[in-house]
């Protein structure tokens, strides 16, 4: 059984088919990129997979559970237990330190554990920035805090919507390296990106166009390492 399976999923806003009959499978431990022009429905799909939105039609099976039928409250619980989220705009709570931001995810999940949170920050190389507020961190550092926050509860899938959209190449590389580390540890990754270099790193790239899956590219020589053209 696949970890995630979308069966004929539609998301319709009025006349607009943001997702139009999308079917796909993601296996456990896979690293998948999603590309596509702006407005093609990438974020819409991520929201549905991330239990933050429901499809208009179709089934979404996560770990064998059809999340399109669950109540809002249950979706929150499923999201909390199985999914780690990374955003383009980082979304750190600005009055909490880096460490506290990581602990926040633990708090809503189960119990905050300062030691474990500090270890997570260590993994993204920010142990020495633990007591800094987001405003005292660079963009790259903030995104690494987000990664730490996303991985702290050992989610089954990490969903990243344009994680490198606001980062320069150096930070892009750091983040992709983190993904690679997570991937080797067996975490499933779904990464939305505009950046072909970031997309190419994944094992598989799906291309969305006007809400439809238009292309699927399998990366034959997968290394999990980013390589820049220039």
């Amino acid at each position: 059984m696949s970890l995630l399976e979308l069966k004929n999923v539609y998301k319709i806003y009025g006349d607009l088919h943001a997702l139009d009959d999308v079917s796909l499978k993601v296996e456990k431990g896979e690293w998948v990129s999603i590309m596509g022009p702006s407005g093609s429905g990438k974020s819409t799909m991520m929201n549905i997979i991330g239990c933050m939105d429901k499809p208009s039609k179709g089934e979404v099976l996560l770990d064998g559970v059809d999340i399109s039928k669950e109540s809002k409250k249950n979706l929150t619980t499923i999201r909390r237990d199985k999914i780690g989220l990374i955003f383009q705009q980082f979304h750190l709570v600005n009055y909490l330190t880096a460490l506290e931001n990581v602990m926040l995810a633990q708090y809503y999940h189960s119990m905050p554990d300062e030691k474990e949170a500090l270890e997570a920050l260590e993994r993204v190389g920010l142990a020495d920035r633990a007591k800094h507020l987001p405003s005292q961190l660079s963009g790259g550092e903030q995104q690494r805090v987000c990664v730490a926050r996303a991985l702290i509860n050992y989610p089954e899938i990490i969903l990243a919507d344009e994680p490198t959209g606001n980062l320069d190449e150096a930070n892009e590389e750091i983040v992709v390296d983190l993904f690679h580390k997570l991937h080797t540890e067996g975490t499933t990754l779904i990464v939305v990106t505009h950046d072909p270099e970031v997309a190419e790193v994944a094992q598989r790239t799906l291309v969305l166009r006007s809400g439809k899956l238009s292309k699927e590219v399998v990366n034959e020589n997968f290394t999990g390492k980013i390589h820049f053209d220039s």
Binding site: G50, M52, K73, T76, T77, R79, R80, D81, L85, Q89, H91, V93, N94, L104, A105, Y108, H109, R149
Partner: peptide, 16 residues
Amino acid sequence: SQEIGLMKAIGAQNSS
């Protein structure tokens, strides 16, 4: 709202 949305996204229920 972003902060609140984020809390909800990482698993906070409305009540908390």
